[in-house]
Amino acid sequence: MELHCDTCARVRTFEPPVRADDLRASCPERACTACGATIVIAPVILLMDRRPRVLLRRAA
């Protein structure tokens, strides 16, 4: 995955970091292959307002 690295100040390849517990597939972190800077990739969560809509009408 190619992302912008703030440390390198350019687009670099990011991969899951090497971990002792070997959970690379489920790891949300990615490490820059050039400098080792790590970022966390978070999923996009859509929050929906489930309250009923209230319509305001002008009195006639």
Rank of each mutant, 00 (worst) to 15 (best):
M1P: 05
M1W: 07
E2S: 14
E2C: 10
E2H: 13
L3M: 05
L3E: 08
L3V: 03
L3R: 06
H4C: 03
H4V: 02
H4K: 11
H4W: 10
C5D: 00
C5G: 01
D6M: 01
D6Y: 06
D6V: 01
T7Q: 08
T7P: 03
T7G: 05
C8W: 00
C8H: 02
A9P: 00
A9D: 00
R10E: 10
R10G: 01
R10I: 00
R10D: 01
R10Y: 01
V11M: 12
V11C: 12
V11W: 12
V11A: 15
R12V: 09
T13P: 03
T13D: 13
T13I: 09
T13N: 08
F14A: 02
F14V: 02
E15R: 09
E15P: 01
E15F: 04
E15H: 05
P16D: 12
P16Q: 03
P16I: 04
P16Y: 02
P17C: 06
P17Y: 13
P17H: 14
P17I: 05
P17M: 04
P17F: 08
V18M: 14
V18A: 09
R19G: 08
A20P: 05
D21N: 13
D21G: 07
D21Y: 12
D21F: 06
D21R: 11
D21S: 09
D22C: 10
D22S: 10
L23H: 11
L23R: 12
R24P: 03
R24C: 05
A25R: 08
A25F: 11
A25P: 02
S26E: 14
S26Y: 10
S26D: 11
C27H: 13
C27D: 15
P28H: 07
E29F: 13
E29N: 13
A31S: 15
C32Y: 04
C32V: 04
C32P: 00
T33C: 06
T33M: 06
T33L: 11
T33F: 03
C35S: 06
C35M: 08
G36T: 02
G36S: 00
A37M: 10
A37Q: 13
A37D: 11
A37R: 11
A37P: 04
T38N: 06
T38L: 10
T38S: 11
I39P: 02
I39M: 09
V40Y: 07
V40D: 07
V40W: 08
I41Q: 15
I41R: 15
A42M: 14
A42L: 15
A42K: 14
P43D: 08
V44A: 08
V44T: 06
V44F: 04
L46V: 04
L46Y: 04
M48G: 06
D49K: 00
D49P: 00
D49M: 01
R50C: 01
R50T: 03
R51P: 04
R51C: 13
R51F: 12
R51T: 14
R51Y: 11
P52L: 09
R53Y: 12
V54E: 11
V54P: 08
L56R: 12
L56C: 07
L56Q: 13
R57I: 13
R57N: 15
R57E: 15
R57D: 14
R58C: 10
R58D: 11
A59V: 12
A59H: 11
A59R: 15
A59P: 14
A60C: 05
A60V: 07
A60L: 12
A60T: 06
